[in-house]
Simulated assay, not measured.
Amino acid sequence: MKYNEISHFSHTEHKLRFEYSEFPFKCDGCKEVGIGSRYKCSICDFDLHMHCAMITSPTLHHPFYTKCNFQFMSKPPGDTPRYCNACEKDVSGFLYHCKACGFDLHPCCAKLPLLLDDGEVKLYLYRKVSSPCHRCGRKGRSWSYRSKCKNYNLHVACVRDMLVENWHEVCVKGRGVNSNIPSLRNTLYTPHSSRRSKGKVKKCCEIAGLAVQVVISAVLGDPTALIAGIVGSFMSRAS
Rank of each mutant, 00 (worst) to 15 (best):
174 G>H: 07
211 A>M: 06
129 V>W: 00
145 Y>Q: 00
174 G>Y: 09
99 K>Q: 14
103 F>S: 12
142 S>F: 02
129 V>D: 06
208 A>D: 02
95 L>G: 06
210 L>M: 13
105 L>F: 11
170 V>I: 14
114 L>H: 14
120 E>H: 12
198 K>Q: 11
183 S>F: 09
149 C>A: 12
101 C>L: 06
200 K>R: 12
153 N>I: 01
205 C>V: 03
149 C>M: 03
108 C>N: 13
167 W>H: 12
93 G>R: 08
187 T>D: 11
142 S>E: 05
136 C>K: 01
141 R>M: 00
183 S>I: 07
183 S>L: 07
138 R>N: 02
204 C>F: 08
214 V>A: 11
214 V>G: 03
112 L>I: 08
174 G>P: 13
122 K>C: 14
194 S>G: 10
213 Q>T: 11
202 K>C: 09
132 P>I: 01
157 A>R: 10
181 I>L: 13
109 C>Y: 07
136 C>W: 05
197 S>I: 07
127 R>T: 04
142 S>Q: 01
102 G>W: 09
97 H>K: 05
142 S>L: 04
172 V>E: 14
203 K>V: 11
130 S>H: 03
184 L>A: 05
144 S>A: 13
123 L>Y: 02
161 D>F: 07
152 Y>F: 15
139 K>F: 02
198 K>E: 15
181 I>R: 08
179 S>N: 13
188 L>E: 06
98 C>K: 04
112 L>P: 09
161 D>K: 03
213 Q>M: 15
198 K>L: 15
160 R>P: 04
176 G>A: 03
200 K>H: 14
216 I>M: 14
134 H>W: 00
178 N>C: 11
103 F>M: 14
163 L>D: 05
192 H>Q: 10
126 Y>V: 00
102 G>Q: 10
184 L>W: 15
133 C>L: 00
216 I>W: 02
200 K>T: 14
163 L>T: 07
191 P>F: 01
209 G>A: 06
213 Q>W: 06
209 G>N: 05
219 V>D: 05
212 V>N: 05
158 C>T: 04
154 L>K: 00
178 N>V: 10
111 K>T: 14
161 D>S: 10
139 K>H: 01
186 N>K: 11
162 M>L: 15
226 L>M: 10
215 V>F: 01
113 P>F: 00
174 G>T: 10
198 K>S: 15
211 A>I: 02
104 D>T: 08
123 L>Q: 02
93 G>W: 04
103 F>K: 08
209 G>P: 06
